[in-house]
Design a protein around this nucleic acid. Structure first.
Lengths: 202, 202
DNA sequence: AGGGACATGTAATTAGTTACATGATTGT
DNA sequence: ACAATCATGTAACTAATTACATGTCCCT
Protein backbone atom coordinates (compact mmCIF):
# COMPACT_ATOMS: atom_id res chain seq x y z
CA UNK A 1 0.00 0.00 0.00
CA UNK A 2 1.21 3.49 -0.83
CA UNK A 3 1.81 6.02 1.95
CA UNK A 4 -1.17 8.12 0.91
CA UNK A 5 -3.64 5.28 1.55
CA UNK A 6 -1.80 4.43 4.75
CA UNK A 7 -2.30 8.00 5.98
CA UNK A 8 -6.00 7.90 5.09
CA UNK A 9 -6.26 4.62 7.01
CA UNK A 10 -4.77 6.06 10.19
CA UNK A 11 -6.91 9.17 9.84
CA UNK A 12 -10.03 7.02 9.47
CA UNK A 13 -9.56 6.06 13.11
CA UNK A 14 -9.51 9.68 14.21
CA UNK A 15 -7.75 12.94 13.42
CA UNK A 16 -4.02 13.04 13.90
CA UNK A 17 -0.83 14.96 13.14
CA UNK A 18 1.99 13.67 10.95
CA UNK A 19 3.93 12.81 14.05
CA UNK A 20 1.02 10.82 15.47
CA UNK A 21 0.55 8.99 12.18
CA UNK A 22 4.16 7.89 12.35
CA UNK A 23 3.48 6.49 15.83
CA UNK A 24 0.72 4.28 14.43
CA UNK A 25 3.36 2.56 12.30
CA UNK A 26 6.00 2.55 15.01
CA UNK A 27 3.99 1.41 18.02
CA UNK A 28 0.34 1.21 17.07
CA UNK A 29 -1.76 -1.49 15.46
CA UNK A 30 -0.35 -0.95 11.98
CA UNK A 31 3.22 -1.54 13.19
CA UNK A 32 2.80 -5.28 12.60
CA UNK A 33 2.06 -5.12 8.87
CA UNK A 34 2.78 -1.65 7.46
CA UNK A 35 5.42 1.05 7.74
CA UNK A 36 6.05 4.64 6.70
CA UNK A 37 8.69 7.24 7.52
CA UNK A 38 8.44 10.98 8.19
CA UNK A 39 10.05 11.67 4.83
CA UNK A 40 7.09 10.07 3.10
CA UNK A 41 4.27 10.95 5.52
CA UNK A 42 4.68 14.75 5.48
CA UNK A 43 4.73 15.13 1.68
CA UNK A 44 1.80 12.70 1.44
CA UNK A 45 -0.27 14.79 3.87
CA UNK A 46 0.51 17.91 1.89
CA UNK A 47 -0.71 16.31 -1.31
CA UNK A 48 -3.81 14.82 0.32
CA UNK A 49 -4.63 18.27 1.66
CA UNK A 50 -4.44 19.98 -1.76
CA UNK A 51 -6.59 17.22 -3.21
CA UNK A 52 -9.22 17.69 -0.53
CA UNK A 53 -8.98 14.18 0.90
CA UNK A 54 -7.97 15.56 4.28
CA UNK A 55 -8.51 18.83 6.12
CA UNK A 56 -5.82 20.51 8.15
CA UNK A 57 -6.19 22.55 11.34
CA UNK A 58 -3.20 24.39 12.77
CA UNK A 59 -3.03 23.93 16.54
CA UNK A 60 -0.95 26.27 18.67
CA UNK A 61 0.55 24.51 21.66
CA UNK A 62 2.09 25.71 24.88
CA UNK A 63 5.71 24.72 25.38
CA UNK A 64 5.53 22.63 22.21
CA UNK A 65 5.91 23.37 18.50
CA UNK A 66 2.75 23.97 16.53
CA UNK A 67 0.76 20.93 15.54
CA UNK A 68 -1.03 20.36 12.27
CA UNK A 69 -4.00 18.13 12.90
CA UNK A 70 -5.40 16.36 9.85
CA UNK A 71 -8.96 15.08 9.52
CA UNK A 72 -10.44 12.78 6.90
CA UNK A 73 -13.04 14.30 4.55
CA UNK A 74 -15.89 12.34 2.94
CA UNK A 75 -13.92 12.26 -0.29
CA UNK A 76 -10.95 10.89 1.62
CA UNK A 77 -13.06 8.16 3.17
CA UNK A 78 -14.40 7.15 -0.25
CA UNK A 79 -10.86 7.02 -1.64
CA UNK A 80 -9.77 4.79 1.24
CA UNK A 81 -12.60 2.34 0.61
CA UNK A 82 -11.84 2.30 -3.11
CA UNK A 83 -8.20 1.44 -2.37
CA UNK A 84 -9.35 -1.31 -0.03
CA UNK A 85 -11.43 -2.88 -2.82
CA UNK A 86 -8.45 -3.34 -5.17
CA UNK A 87 -7.00 -6.87 -5.28
CA UNK A 88 -4.41 -7.11 -2.52
CA UNK A 89 -0.76 -7.54 -3.49
CA UNK A 90 0.96 -10.57 -1.97
CA UNK A 91 2.58 -10.22 1.46
CA UNK A 92 6.18 -9.16 1.59
CA UNK A 93 8.18 -10.65 4.43
CA UNK A 94 11.90 -10.03 4.72
CA UNK A 95 13.72 -11.36 7.73
CA UNK A 96 17.39 -11.26 8.58
CA UNK A 97 16.56 -13.52 11.51
CA UNK A 98 15.39 -16.38 9.27
CA UNK A 99 18.22 -15.72 6.82
CA UNK A 100 20.94 -15.92 9.48
CA UNK A 101 19.29 -18.86 11.25
CA UNK A 102 19.24 -20.73 7.94
CA UNK A 103 23.05 -20.73 8.00
CA UNK A 104 23.41 -21.44 11.74
CA UNK A 105 26.11 -24.09 11.16
CA UNK A 106 28.45 -21.48 9.69
CA UNK A 107 28.40 -19.25 12.77
CA UNK A 108 29.96 -19.40 16.24
CA UNK A 109 27.53 -20.99 18.68
CA UNK A 110 27.28 -18.01 21.10
CA UNK A 111 26.19 -15.88 18.16
CA UNK A 112 23.38 -18.30 17.35
CA UNK A 113 22.26 -18.53 20.97
CA UNK A 114 22.16 -14.74 21.18
CA UNK A 115 20.08 -14.61 17.99
CA UNK A 116 17.54 -17.06 19.42
CA UNK A 117 17.36 -15.35 22.79
CA UNK A 118 16.78 -11.98 21.19
CA UNK A 119 14.02 -13.50 19.10
CA UNK A 120 12.37 -15.09 22.10
CA UNK A 121 12.49 -11.74 23.92
CA UNK A 122 11.02 -10.01 20.90
CA UNK A 123 8.09 -12.45 20.79
CA UNK A 124 7.50 -12.13 24.53
CA UNK A 125 7.51 -8.34 24.43
CA UNK A 126 5.22 -8.24 21.42
CA UNK A 127 2.74 -10.67 23.00
CA UNK A 128 2.83 -8.68 26.23
CA UNK A 129 2.09 -5.50 24.30
CA UNK A 130 -0.74 -7.09 22.32
CA UNK A 131 -2.46 -8.66 25.31
CA UNK A 132 -2.74 -5.23 26.94
CA UNK A 133 -5.75 -4.46 24.81
CA UNK A 134 -9.11 -6.15 25.20
CA UNK A 135 -10.08 -7.82 21.91
CA UNK A 136 -13.78 -7.59 22.74
CA UNK A 137 -13.57 -3.81 22.51
CA UNK A 138 -12.24 -3.91 18.94
CA UNK A 139 -14.29 -3.65 15.73
CA UNK A 140 -14.81 -6.99 13.99
CA UNK A 141 -12.08 -6.78 11.32
CA UNK A 142 -9.54 -5.40 13.69
CA UNK A 143 -10.33 -8.16 16.16
CA UNK A 144 -9.60 -10.90 13.61
CA UNK A 145 -6.29 -9.22 12.71
CA UNK A 146 -5.42 -9.06 16.37
CA UNK A 147 -6.33 -12.69 16.98
CA UNK A 148 -4.49 -14.00 13.95
CA UNK A 149 -1.41 -11.94 14.68
CA UNK A 150 -1.34 -12.96 18.30
CA UNK A 151 -1.61 -16.65 17.38
CA UNK A 152 1.37 -16.30 15.06
CA UNK A 153 3.54 -14.68 17.72
CA UNK A 154 2.45 -17.10 20.45
CA UNK A 155 3.02 -20.21 18.37
CA UNK A 156 6.38 -18.92 17.14
CA UNK A 157 7.45 -18.36 20.72
CA UNK A 158 6.28 -21.80 21.79
CA UNK A 159 8.07 -23.45 18.88
CA UNK A 160 11.36 -21.71 19.62
CA UNK A 161 11.18 -22.46 23.33
CA UNK A 162 10.40 -26.11 22.70
CA UNK A 163 13.15 -26.61 20.13
CA UNK A 164 15.90 -24.28 21.29
CA UNK A 165 17.81 -26.69 23.53
CA UNK A 166 17.74 -29.61 21.13
CA UNK A 167 18.85 -27.31 18.35
CA UNK A 168 21.80 -25.93 20.30
CA UNK A 169 22.87 -29.40 21.40
CA UNK A 170 22.82 -30.52 17.80
CA UNK A 171 24.91 -27.56 16.66
CA UNK A 172 27.38 -28.10 19.49
CA UNK A 173 27.95 -31.71 18.50
CA UNK A 174 28.57 -30.56 14.93
CA UNK A 175 31.17 -28.07 16.12
CA UNK A 176 32.92 -30.79 18.13
CA UNK A 177 32.79 -33.29 15.29
CA UNK A 178 33.07 -31.26 12.09
CA UNK A 179 32.19 -33.07 8.88
CA UNK A 180 35.50 -32.08 7.27
CA UNK A 181 38.34 -34.39 8.30
CA UNK A 182 41.02 -31.69 8.08
CA UNK A 183 41.58 -30.17 11.52
CA UNK A 184 42.70 -26.79 10.20
CA UNK A 185 39.19 -26.04 8.89
CA UNK A 186 37.68 -26.20 12.38
CA UNK A 187 38.19 -22.55 13.24
CA UNK A 188 37.77 -20.13 10.40
CA UNK A 189 39.63 -16.85 10.17
CA UNK A 190 37.15 -14.29 9.03
CA UNK A 191 37.92 -10.68 8.32
CA UNK A 192 35.85 -9.08 11.05
CA UNK A 193 36.79 -5.56 10.02
CA UNK A 194 34.13 -5.57 7.32
CA UNK A 195 31.27 -6.10 9.76
CA UNK A 196 28.96 -3.15 9.84
CA UNK A 197 27.73 -2.98 13.40
CA UNK A 198 25.76 0.18 12.75
CA UNK A 199 23.05 -1.23 10.54
CA UNK A 200 19.94 -0.66 12.60
CA UNK A 201 17.40 1.97 11.68
CA UNK A 202 16.53 4.67 14.18
CA UNK B 1 20.04 -8.12 3.29
CA UNK B 2 21.47 -6.70 0.10
CA UNK B 3 21.19 -8.61 -3.16
CA UNK B 4 24.92 -9.33 -3.24
CA UNK B 5 24.81 -11.28 0.03
CA UNK B 6 21.60 -12.97 -1.11
CA UNK B 7 23.37 -14.21 -4.25
CA UNK B 8 26.31 -15.50 -2.21
CA UNK B 9 23.83 -17.31 0.04
CA UNK B 10 22.14 -19.10 -2.84
CA UNK B 11 25.51 -19.93 -4.38
CA UNK B 12 26.68 -21.38 -1.06
CA UNK B 13 24.18 -24.18 -1.59
CA UNK B 14 25.64 -24.99 -5.00
CA UNK B 15 26.56 -23.31 -8.26
CA UNK B 16 23.76 -21.65 -10.20
CA UNK B 17 22.94 -19.21 -12.98
CA UNK B 18 21.22 -15.87 -12.50
CA UNK B 19 17.98 -17.42 -13.63
CA UNK B 20 18.30 -20.22 -11.11
CA UNK B 21 19.10 -17.77 -8.32
CA UNK B 22 15.88 -15.96 -9.09
CA UNK B 23 14.02 -19.27 -8.72
CA UNK B 24 15.39 -19.66 -5.19
CA UNK B 25 13.54 -16.47 -4.27
CA UNK B 26 10.44 -17.28 -6.29
CA UNK B 27 9.87 -20.92 -5.39
CA UNK B 28 12.78 -22.12 -3.27
CA UNK B 29 13.49 -22.01 0.43
CA UNK B 30 14.36 -18.30 0.44
CA UNK B 31 10.99 -17.36 -1.04
CA UNK B 32 9.49 -17.16 2.46
CA UNK B 33 11.77 -14.46 3.84
CA UNK B 34 13.82 -12.83 1.06
CA UNK B 35 13.30 -11.58 -2.48
CA UNK B 36 15.30 -10.31 -5.44
CA UNK B 37 14.51 -9.48 -9.05
CA UNK B 38 16.44 -10.09 -12.28
CA UNK B 39 17.19 -6.41 -12.52
CA UNK B 40 19.16 -6.61 -9.30
CA UNK B 41 20.56 -10.15 -9.53
CA UNK B 42 22.39 -9.79 -12.87
CA UNK B 43 24.27 -6.59 -11.99
CA UNK B 44 25.11 -8.06 -8.58
CA UNK B 45 26.62 -11.19 -10.15
CA UNK B 46 28.68 -9.04 -12.50
CA UNK B 47 30.10 -7.07 -9.59
CA UNK B 48 30.73 -10.16 -7.46
CA UNK B 49 32.60 -11.66 -10.40
CA UNK B 50 34.96 -8.69 -10.83
CA UNK B 51 35.60 -8.70 -7.10
CA UNK B 52 36.50 -12.38 -7.15
CA UNK B 53 33.75 -13.50 -4.78
CA UNK B 54 32.27 -15.75 -7.46
CA UNK B 55 33.62 -17.51 -10.53
CA UNK B 56 31.74 -17.68 -13.78
CA UNK B 57 31.68 -20.51 -16.33
CA UNK B 58 29.95 -20.03 -19.65
CA UNK B 59 27.89 -23.09 -20.51
CA UNK B 60 26.77 -23.69 -24.08
CA UNK B 61 23.41 -25.43 -24.20
CA UNK B 62 21.53 -27.29 -26.90
CA UNK B 63 18.23 -25.75 -27.87
CA UNK B 64 18.60 -23.20 -25.06
CA UNK B 65 20.38 -19.86 -24.71
CA UNK B 66 23.83 -19.92 -23.18
CA UNK B 67 24.03 -20.22 -19.45
CA UNK B 68 26.45 -18.49 -17.12
CA UNK B 69 27.01 -20.70 -14.11
CA UNK B 70 28.39 -18.96 -11.04
CA UNK B 71 30.34 -20.66 -8.26
CA UNK B 72 31.32 -19.35 -4.84
CA UNK B 73 35.03 -18.79 -4.20
CA UNK B 74 36.68 -19.05 -0.77
CA UNK B 75 36.71 -15.27 -0.57
CA UNK B 76 32.98 -15.27 -1.38
CA UNK B 77 32.27 -17.78 1.37
CA UNK B 78 34.20 -15.66 3.89
CA UNK B 79 32.27 -12.57 2.86
CA UNK B 80 28.98 -14.41 3.30
CA UNK B 81 29.91 -15.49 6.82
CA UNK B 82 31.03 -11.96 7.69
CA UNK B 83 27.68 -10.59 6.55
CA UNK B 84 25.91 -13.22 8.61
CA UNK B 85 27.77 -12.07 11.73
CA UNK B 86 26.48 -8.50 11.52
CA UNK B 87 23.58 -7.68 13.85
CA UNK B 88 20.37 -8.56 12.02
CA UNK B 89 18.02 -5.75 11.04
CA UNK B 90 14.44 -6.14 12.32
CA UNK B 91 11.96 -8.10 10.22
CA UNK B 92 9.93 -6.21 7.67
CA UNK B 93 6.44 -7.52 7.11
CA UNK B 94 4.03 -5.70 4.82
CA UNK B 95 0.66 -7.24 4.16
CA UNK B 96 -2.25 -5.94 2.17
CA UNK B 97 -4.23 -8.89 3.50
CA UNK B 98 -3.98 -7.71 7.10
CA UNK B 99 -4.50 -4.11 6.07
CA UNK B 100 -7.72 -4.82 4.17
CA UNK B 101 -8.98 -7.26 6.81
CA UNK B 102 -8.48 -4.57 9.43
CA UNK B 103 -11.20 -2.52 7.70
CA UNK B 104 -13.52 -5.44 6.97
CA UNK B 105 -16.60 -3.54 8.14
CA UNK B 106 -16.14 -0.99 5.36
CA UNK B 107 -16.29 -3.53 2.56
CA UNK B 108 -19.03 -5.58 0.89
CA UNK B 109 -19.29 -8.98 2.54
CA UNK B 110 -18.56 -11.08 -0.60
CA UNK B 111 -15.31 -9.18 -0.98
CA UNK B 112 -14.29 -10.08 2.57
CA UNK B 113 -15.26 -13.74 2.12
CA UNK B 114 -13.18 -13.88 -1.05
CA UNK B 115 -10.24 -12.37 0.78
CA UNK B 116 -10.42 -15.00 3.51
CA UNK B 117 -10.89 -17.89 1.10
CA UNK B 118 -7.89 -16.80 -0.95
CA UNK B 119 -5.85 -16.59 2.21
CA UNK B 120 -6.93 -20.05 3.35
CA UNK B 121 -6.00 -21.43 -0.08
CA UNK B 122 -2.64 -19.70 0.08
CA UNK B 123 -1.88 -21.25 3.46
CA UNK B 124 -2.98 -24.71 2.29
CA UNK B 125 -0.83 -24.54 -0.85
CA UNK B 126 2.18 -23.28 1.07
CA UNK B 127 1.89 -25.99 3.70
CA UNK B 128 1.45 -28.61 0.98
CA UNK B 129 4.60 -27.34 -0.74
CA UNK B 130 6.60 -27.28 2.47
CA UNK B 131 5.59 -30.75 3.64
CA UNK B 132 6.94 -32.20 0.39
CA UNK B 133 10.43 -32.06 1.77
CA UNK B 134 11.70 -34.26 4.57
CA UNK B 135 12.96 -32.07 7.46
CA UNK B 136 15.32 -34.80 8.66
CA UNK B 137 17.34 -34.42 5.48
CA UNK B 138 17.96 -30.71 6.09
CA UNK B 139 20.99 -29.17 7.80
CA UNK B 140 20.31 -28.05 11.38
CA UNK B 141 19.72 -24.32 10.81
CA UNK B 142 17.61 -24.87 7.78
CA UNK B 143 15.52 -27.42 9.66
CA UNK B 144 14.67 -24.94 12.41
CA UNK B 145 13.67 -22.35 9.80
CA UNK B 146 11.48 -24.92 8.13
CA UNK B 147 9.87 -26.01 11.38
CA UNK B 148 9.20 -22.47 12.60
CA UNK B 149 7.84 -21.36 9.25
CA UNK B 150 5.59 -24.36 8.92
CA UNK B 151 4.17 -23.81 12.43
CA UNK B 152 3.32 -20.24 11.53
CA UNK B 153 1.49 -21.24 8.36
CA UNK B 154 -0.32 -24.16 10.01
CA UNK B 155 -1.49 -22.17 13.00
CA UNK B 156 -2.59 -19.28 10.81
CA UNK B 157 -4.66 -21.67 8.72
CA UNK B 158 -6.21 -23.28 11.79
CA UNK B 159 -7.07 -19.89 13.28
CA UNK B 160 -8.75 -18.66 10.12
CA UNK B 161 -10.71 -21.87 9.64
CA UNK B 162 -11.87 -21.85 13.25
CA UNK B 163 -12.93 -18.19 13.25
CA UNK B 164 -14.12 -17.60 9.69
CA UNK B 165 -17.78 -18.47 10.14
CA UNK B 166 -18.26 -16.57 13.38
CA UNK B 167 -16.51 -13.59 11.84
CA UNK B 168 -18.71 -13.57 8.73
CA UNK B 169 -21.88 -13.97 10.80
CA UNK B 170 -20.84 -11.01 12.90
CA UNK B 171 -20.16 -8.86 9.85
CA UNK B 172 -23.48 -9.86 8.29
CA UNK B 173 -25.41 -8.80 11.36
CA UNK B 174 -23.61 -5.45 11.25
CA UNK B 175 -24.61 -4.97 7.62
CA UNK B 176 -28.24 -5.74 8.47
CA UNK B 177 -28.27 -3.47 11.52
CA UNK B 178 -25.93 -0.61 10.67
CA UNK B 179 -24.88 1.55 13.62
CA UNK B 180 -25.95 4.74 11.79
CA UNK B 181 -29.67 5.41 12.16
CA UNK B 182 -29.96 7.19 8.80
CA UNK B 183 -31.15 4.70 6.13
CA UNK B 184 -29.44 6.54 3.26
CA UNK B 185 -25.99 5.69 4.65
CA UNK B 186 -26.62 1.95 4.36
CA UNK B 187 -25.34 1.55 0.80
CA UNK B 188 -22.39 3.69 -0.11
CA UNK B 189 -21.78 5.02 -3.58
CA UNK B 190 -18.12 4.60 -4.28
CA UNK B 191 -16.33 5.64 -7.41
CA UNK B 192 -15.28 2.23 -8.68
CA UNK B 193 -13.55 3.64 -11.75
CA UNK B 194 -10.42 4.41 -9.74
CA UNK B 195 -9.81 0.79 -8.75
CA UNK B 196 -6.61 -0.50 -10.21
CA UNK B 197 -7.24 -4.17 -10.88
CA UNK B 198 -3.81 -4.66 -12.44
CA UNK B 199 -1.65 -4.32 -9.39
CA UNK B 200 -0.07 -7.75 -9.11
CA UNK B 201 3.58 -8.32 -9.88
CA UNK B 202 4.59 -10.85 -12.51
C1' DA C 1 -1.37 -18.64 -31.91
C1' DG C 2 -0.46 -17.78 -27.53
C1' DG C 3 1.42 -18.40 -23.09
C1' DG C 4 4.97 -20.07 -20.22
C1' DA C 5 9.59 -21.73 -19.18
C1' DC C 6 14.25 -20.97 -20.25
C1' DA C 7 17.99 -17.35 -20.48
C1' DT C 8 20.58 -12.63 -20.03
C1' DG C 9 20.87 -8.09 -19.75
C1' DT C 10 19.97 -2.67 -19.72
C1' DA C 11 17.45 1.69 -18.96
C1' DA C 12 14.02 4.36 -16.92
C1' DT C 13 11.63 5.21 -13.16
C1' DT C 14 10.04 5.40 -8.52
C1' DA C 15 8.93 5.15 -4.20
C1' DG C 16 10.78 5.27 -0.78
C1' DT C 17 14.70 5.87 3.14
C1' DT C 18 18.33 8.44 5.58
C1' DA C 19 20.28 12.41 6.82
C1' DC C 20 19.95 17.14 7.64
C1' DA C 21 17.94 21.38 9.76
C1' DT C 22 15.73 23.43 13.96
C1' DG C 23 14.29 23.71 18.68
C1' DA C 24 11.93 23.21 23.37
C1' DT C 25 11.03 20.07 27.15
C1' DT C 26 11.47 16.16 30.16
C1' DG C 27 13.56 12.45 32.17
C1' DT C 28 18.13 9.74 33.63
C1' DA D 1 25.11 16.31 30.24
C1' DC D 2 22.81 13.33 27.23
C1' DA D 3 19.15 10.86 25.29
C1' DA D 4 14.35 10.74 24.31
C1' DT D 5 9.84 12.71 23.08
C1' DC D 6 7.47 16.07 20.72
C1' DA D 7 7.05 18.47 16.15
C1' DT D 8 7.60 19.66 10.91
C1' DG D 9 9.78 19.70 6.90
C1' DT D 10 13.40 19.29 2.79
C1' DA D 11 17.18 17.39 0.04
C1' DA D 12 20.12 13.86 -1.33
C1' DC D 13 20.42 9.48 -2.26
C1' DT D 14 19.82 4.67 -3.31
C1' DA D 15 18.45 0.41 -3.96
C1' DA D 16 15.55 -1.52 -5.87
C1' DT D 17 11.42 -2.58 -9.31
C1' DT D 18 9.29 -2.51 -13.81
C1' DA D 19 9.53 -2.38 -18.41
C1' DC D 20 12.00 -3.12 -22.43
C1' DA D 21 14.87 -5.86 -25.71
C1' DT D 22 15.75 -10.51 -27.82
C1' DG D 23 15.16 -15.30 -28.87
C1' DT D 24 14.00 -20.56 -28.75
C1' DC D 25 11.35 -24.39 -27.38
C1' DC D 26 7.31 -26.75 -25.71
C1' DC D 27 2.67 -27.43 -24.59
C1' DT D 28 -2.29 -26.76 -25.36
Amino acid sequence: MDVRTLCLAVLYQGEASGYEIKKAFKEGAFSHFQDASFGSIYPALGRLSTEGLVECTQMAQEKRPDKKVYKLTQSGEDTLITSLLAPPTPDRFTSDFFFVLYFAELLPLPQVIKLLDQRISFYKETIERMTQCDPASLPTGRRLCHGLGLTVYQNSLTYLEENKERFITELRSQHETPRTSSPDTKTKDINLKQIDTNRHAS
